[in-house]
């Protein structure tokens, strides 16, 4: 389960990577990365499955603070939220007019995965034991991530397409085994915003 949860965990990470203009090299990219202290954005997720003619569309938003807090929230078609603050990870689902905690084993697995990817938040891709990376300056600039042994049974390739505007990611494409794919397009991205108190603690 832990390995499989790398997908959402990895998504969180790559959303938070600061992007650079097409002329910037990898070192500059990482330098920009270190300047990001917080991020918020809306997203549209398209999940393509072999057995579905039309993709599954989900809309949501996320908030990240480099001190180790994350709020990953879907607003359509399901209303769910994952909150991480330090070591604690909690999941909630909105039903019958109120937020209800999700008591699943996935909570613990997610906590472990998210703890591991704190490295990624700091741009330490070279230290990552799950994916190897390559950078293409473009345009558009792209970061390709190739899974190492083990995770490649589930994910074949991930590509992050960067905006020309530093700190902005246009979209992420994830290719899985079979013909399943997921793309996430980002909108209204804000770098280093201030967050209201409790956003990482209360659904």
């Amino acid at each position: 389960m832990k390995k499989l949860l790398f997908l959402p965990a990895f998504l969180f990470t790559i959303l938070l990577c600061p992007a650079t203009g097409p002329s910037q090299d990898w070192t500059s990219l990482q330098e920009a990365f270190r300047k990001v202290k917080s991020v918020q954005a809306d997203f549209l997720q398209k999940r393509r499955l072999q057995i579905l003619k039309d993709p599954l569309l989900s809309e949501g938003r996320f908030f990240f603070d480099a001190s180790g807090s994350l709020r990953w929230e879907y607003v359509k078609p399901l209303r769910t939220v994952m909150l991480q603050k330090g070591e604690a990870v909690r999941l909630y689902h909105f039903t019958e007019g109120k937020w209800k905690p999700e008591m699943t084993q996935a909570v613990e697995a997610r906590r472990m995965v998210l703890a591991e990817i704190q490295q990624w938040f700091q741009g330490r891709f070279a230290e990552n034991k799950v994916f190897s990376h390559s950078y293409s300056p473009g345009p558009p600039a792209r970061v390709a991530l190739t899974p190492r042994e083990g995770i490649n049974r589930f994910i074949q390739r991930i590509e992050i397409v960067l905006s020309v505007k530093p700190g902005i990611i246009d979209r992420v494409e994830i290719e899985e085994s079979g013909s399943s794919r997921t793309s996430i397009e980002f909108r209204n991205v804000e770098i280093n915003p201030s967050f209201p108190s409790g956003i990482f603690e209360k659904p």
């Binding site: 997908l7 959402p8 599954l56 990953w72 879907y74 769910t80 996935a106």
Partner: peptide, 11 residues
């Protein structure tokens, strides 16, 4: 043919 996914879309 049935698939169960997490809200994040993971099978």
């Amino acid at each position: 043919h049935s698939i169960l996914l997490t809200p994040e879309g993971f099978i």
